[in-house]
């Protein structure tokens, strides 16, 4: 059992114009075997929350804490967080010219497990995981995210999720830009991972569409840098019909 505990988290982005607070007191618990959905309008800071958990250097945590099974996540480097069992499926994964997918995945697995995977089983595992996501085997020899379509990028993120088997996965708008067929494939990938490793999932999304394929246990509404409402799956249905208006209006008031 793993438990990610975020307590009263405040974070800012520092630019030439000074410090702009984005997260304004986020408290949240993600446990193994549960799926938390975070829903919010554009610019609410929900993606920032994902990046701050992963340790992106652009953001500065000004107060609050993040704890994973008794370990202080904020004291860790980005790679240490990953090795501790955190994973962020990114909305806009970056291209890495000259680095093949297979080389990247193998380097990553080696770092995560502390030893290089055995070549024979590794090739087989990778092929199977790619087949599960209906990815062409030629994908492995392409450069990481270079020339990938939007759907390919997301499949590649979920491929990593399946191979790396983190304790807690944060999915940052994995559904955005996907057509319904790709959304189903990607969602199945997430569900397979969740079942096989009894993982905790923090699913960040703008739309309720993905929640038809990945069942949330808890739904949070995220507005203006904090969680303003929490409920069961029924909350997603309310948001679907009513939108974020009531919450954004309340935040402005």
């Amino acid at each position: 059992m793993s438990k990610l505990t975020i307590t009263d988290l405040h974070a800012s982005v520092i630019t030439e114009d000074g410090e702009t607070p984005i997260l304004r007191g986020v408290s949240l618990v993600v446990e193994s075997g549960t799926t938390n959905a975070i829903m919010g309008p554009n610019g609410s800071g929900k993606s920032t929350l994902a990046y701050v958990i992963a340790g992106h250097p652009k953001y500065t945590v000004t107060s609050g804490s993040i704890d994973l099974d008794g370990q202080d996540v904020l004291a860790m480097t980005v790679d240490e967080r990953a090795r501790a069992g955190l994973f962020l499926a990114m909305q806009y994964p970056v291209e890495i010219p000259g680095v093949s997918v297979s080389n990247f995945l193998r380097t990553s697995i080696t770092a995560l497990k502390g030893e290089a995977p055995k070549l024979r089983t590794w090739t087989k595992d990778m092929k199977e995981a790619m087949a599960d996501l209906q990815m062409d085997p030629a994908f492995a020899s392409r450069n990481v995210n270079e020339g990938f379509s939007g759907g390919e990028k997301k499949r590649h993120e979920i491929l990593q999720l399946g191979l790396m088997q983190p304790k807690i996965a944060i999915l940052d708008e994995t559904d955005s830009g996907l057509d319904v067929d790709a959304l189903k494939i990607v969602s199945e990938g997430v569900n397979r991972y969740k079942e096989s490793s009894n993982a905790g999932v923090l699913l960040i999304t703008h739309y309720t569409r993905i929640l038809r394929y990945i069942q949330p246990d808890v739904v949070h509404v995220f507005v203006d840098g904090r969680i303003v409402a929490t409920g069961g799956p029924e909350l997603a249905d309310i948001l679907e019909s009513d939108g974020y208006e009531t919450y954004t209006a309340a935040a402005r008031a």
Partner: peptide, 16 residues
């Protein structure tokens, strides 16, 4: 950041 977020230490990430 991307490479490190996959557990790859900074020096190895730079090397890649």
């Amino acid at each position: 950041f991307y490479l490190q977020s996959r557990g790859i230490p900074e020096s190895v990430a730079r090397q890649l």
